[in-house]
Design a binder for these strands. Structure first.
Length: 359
DNA sequence: GTGCATGTTGTAGAAAGATG
DNA sequence: CATCTTTCTACAACATGCAC
């Protein structure tokens, strides 16, 4: 199979250099001109079916790969979505990326991922003419000076996922508070009165607190265990919890991130805690692995990854109308507002939660 | 050394041209 | 006159050549 055509790149030196196959090479072999090839490859009208088939077969034979740089040069758009990979541990983001990739490919767009820091990533995307950028950051995030500077040169659309916001950027937030609240509600319906929560002081904790209050749970200051700086649950706090007299020992546990789960499972084995007989367990983040990590599939609460990915790509592909203008908005304000979506986490009841026998 | 004109890349699209 | 093909040019950024 021919992979490269041999052409003289520099007439004065008369050197034959291996050059990538272009539409011109295809045109030459097909006995047509370059624009005809362009039309045939892009399914534009004005080319007979016979010629089109001939051109497509030659392109395939030469292993032709379109030059996107040249394409962007002339169309002035990239049809490419750039993703800035955040520094998040765990499986959630891995699955989200795959789901986004599927949505992007479905629409005939291309997908680039940068694992560099956000400012550097935006810089690289600018260089590559990527005009739609997806960036996951939790609320409370603020851009540094370098990021602001790079964004000034960025001539496209930015979608922030995870809760962060910037003027002019699209935004997808997750109602994490409602998610954890749903988890508490589910446990309350199963008859649990003593629920421990491991996590950080944030929206999720607020959801836990609200649930504990509204469903009249037994409250004890030790039931909230704050994660350490390393993101892990402090060993002592957990041991202390299960060393309590049976009347004060929690019957259910909610952990605020799947990233912490494997460490927790180690403690459960050590302390001989059986799920769900000794303890009902709910994990935030619904990733497929949680079906198999224990003998029983885990009950989870978290945003539906497929929905998150679909919504994100819908926004960046321009399939959703921009944010609704209010009466007080000027036209410019309404246009620069962008799309705002809030995704509600879903509770998926599996077998790690069990109803308490009525005492 | 400076400043300007021209050429280079691969592709798409408008407009003109050729064919039956 | 319809259908298909060709010619020409723009696109952005940089390299090269040449006159001053």
């Amino acid at each position: 199979m021919l992979r490269y055509s041999i052409r003289s790149r520099n007439n004065s030196r008369k050197e034959a250099v291996l050059v990538r196959v272009t539409v011109k090479d295809i045109a030459k072999l097909a006995g047509v001109t370059q624009p005809t090839v362009s039309k045939a490859l892009n399914n534009e009208p004005g080319v007979s079916e016979e010629t089109r088939m001939r051109i497509l077969s030659i392109a395939k034979e030469l292993n032709y790969v379109p030059n996107l740089a040249a394409k962007r040069l002339v169309t002035r758009q990239s049809n490419c979505i750039g993703l800035i990979w955040p520094r998040i541990e765990g499986l959630f983001y891995f699955h989200l990326c795959h789901a986004i990739e599927r949505e992007v490919t479905k629409r005939g767009l291309t997908f680039l991922i940068s694992v560099a820091n956000p400012a550097e990533a935006v810089h690289t995307f600018n260089e590559h003419f990527v005009d739609r950028v997806l960036f996951w950051e939790a609320s409370g995030w603020a851009p540094d000076m370098r990021f602001v500077k790079e964004m000034e040169a960025f001539q496209g659309e930015l979608l922030l996922m995870g809760g962060a916001s910037l003027p002019g950027a699209h935004r997808i937030d997750i109602d994490r508070k409602a998610g954890i609240y749903k988890a508490v509600q589910h446990l309350a319906q199963l008859g649990h009165r003593k629920i421990t929560y491991i996590g950080n002081p944030n929206d999720k904790l607020n959801g836990y607190m609200q649930g504990m209050f509204e469903f009249g749970m037994e409250h004890h200051p030790d039931y909230f265990i704050k994660r350490g700086i390393d993101g892990k649950a402090p060993e002592q706090a957990i041991q202390g919890l299960f060393a309590r007299p049976a009347s004060e020992r929690p019957t259910a546990l909610i952990i605020d991130s799947q990233g912490m789960l494997f460490q927790m499972l180690k403690w459960f084995r050590k302390l001989r805690v059986s799920i769900p007989d000794d303890l009902s367990l709910i994990v935030y983040d619904d990733v497929p692995e949680l079906e198999d990590v224990l003998d029983v599939p885990l009950t989870t609460v978290g945003p539906n990854i497929g929905e998150l990915a679909r919504r994100a790509v819908e926004i960046l592909a321009g399939e959703l109308p921009a944010g609704q203008a209010t009466d007080t908005d000027s036209k410019e304000q309404a246009l620069s507002r962008g799309v705002e979506l809030v995704i509600e986490p879903v509770l998926t009841v599996r077998q790690s939660t069990k109803s308490l026998p009525v005492s």
